Computed example of a mutant assay.
Amino acid sequence: MRTAHSRRHLVAAAGVMLAVTGLVTGCTASTGESNTGPTNNANNSESGETVRIGFSGPAADHGWLGAINSAAIAEAEKYDDVELVVAEGTNDANLQISQVETFINDGVDAIVLLPTDGAALTEVAIKAMEAGIPVINVDREFSSPFAARVTVLGDNYGMGVSAGTYICEKIGDNPDAVVAEIAGIDSLPLTQDRSRGFADALEDCGLEVSNRVAADFTVQGGEAAASQLLAAAPQIDAIWNHDDDQGVGVLAAIDAAGRDEFFMVGGAGSKNAMDEIKSGDSVLEATVIYPSTQGADGIALARLVAQGKSLGDLVEQDVPTRIVLYAPVVTAENVDEYLPTAFAS
């Protein structure tokens, strides 16, 4: 059962994905007809003026963050006109501020920044922008629109909508279905957005969250939260777990409790989760993607901005200021399409 609300969200998100696809392909399809759009839209994959891009992100203490960093580096290596300067990953906002100040002093052509704390890094990002260095903000937003030329985000609200829509399609005809939720860190806006999207999608098919616990994006936290949930809820029909890294612990708790009367939807898109889905022997039968390509997308966008180019499939003369990536649901039917970009927990 897919509702009008969910359809509207998914159609809008699909439109964004078309833009991102243009970013990846870097050129328009050849039809034999002349291209009447701006000339800087064509041949983005061709080598241009060499640009130095500074990249700084948090410490890779989480599978998803590790994938962010490695994908960004791999993306830069695709281009012979990109020189990537990588700062050591850190969870210390002050250290990251000093890294950005070093990029500014070195006169890089662009900075890709996944801030350990968006608010804390806002001032130094504005400083870079005022120095004429475009900043590409990834995943965690700054607190001022003047701090970034482009912001690349996963769709946290959309993750919730996608998870809720999938559950509605499976059990929406049962008004008494018990739906449980294992969130991430409740104090984070991203967790709040995911829960809000999930509740909105469930409401469209007459369901609601019956039992909810919060974890902390770690294996240990996921196991503890899931154990608490299972002890409190003797009957469950569906679970949405926000994060596949903590999902390793969630599945361990489920196995220890000997429970299998429900199905589970994960979140983020880890290889571990996709292997479980593909096996067909797990309660985990779907996961919602939160792209670990955001850093790589930031590198590709930084290159385009620094070279004065735009997205290949858009008529718009400049790179958009904000790109929100799609949150698709991965199931046994399409898992092979997503495994190549899955990250290891």
Rank of each mutant, 00 (worst) to 15 (best):
G184I: 04
A231W: 13
A183Q: 13
G222R: 03
H242V: 10
D139C: 07
N211C: 03
Y157E: 07
T151Y: 09
I239F: 04
Y166R: 10
Q220A: 15
A232N: 13
D155A: 13
G164N: 07
I182D: 06
E141Q: 12
E203S: 13
L229Y: 14
V178A: 04
G247F: 07
E181M: 15
D193V: 10
Q192I: 06
D200Y: 08
I167A: 05
D173M: 00
G221N: 07
D139I: 09
E141K: 12
P189T: 05
V150D: 00
I167D: 08
V178Q: 07
R194H: 06
D200A: 14
Y166M: 08
L229R: 13
I239G: 10
G197P: 10
A215W: 00
A238S: 06
I236A: 04
I133E: 07
Q235M: 08
E203N: 14
S187T: 14
Y166D: 07
D216Y: 01
V138M: 06
M159Y: 12
A147C: 06
T165L: 02
V138K: 07
D193Y: 14
H242D: 14
V213A: 01
D216F: 00
N137Q: 12
L229F: 13
P189D: 10
E203A: 15
H242E: 15
D204W: 11
D139A: 12
P175I: 03
R140P: 03
T165Q: 13
T191N: 12
N211D: 08
N241Y: 05
E203F: 09
A226I: 08
A238E: 06
D193F: 14
A226P: 02
Q192D: 11
G184V: 04
G197R: 09
V178Y: 02
S195D: 11
N174E: 10
G206V: 03
P234E: 05
T191Q: 15
R194D: 05
D139P: 04
D186T: 13
F142E: 00
D173N: 07
D243E: 11
G247L: 10
I236M: 04
D176V: 01
R196P: 05
N137C: 10
A148L: 03
T218Y: 12
L190I: 09
A148R: 12
S162H: 01
D237N: 09
P175A: 11
G158R: 01
F198I: 04
Q220F: 12
D245R: 12
E223L: 11
G221P: 08
L190W: 09
L207G: 02
I239W: 07
V209S: 03
R149I: 02
A238Q: 07
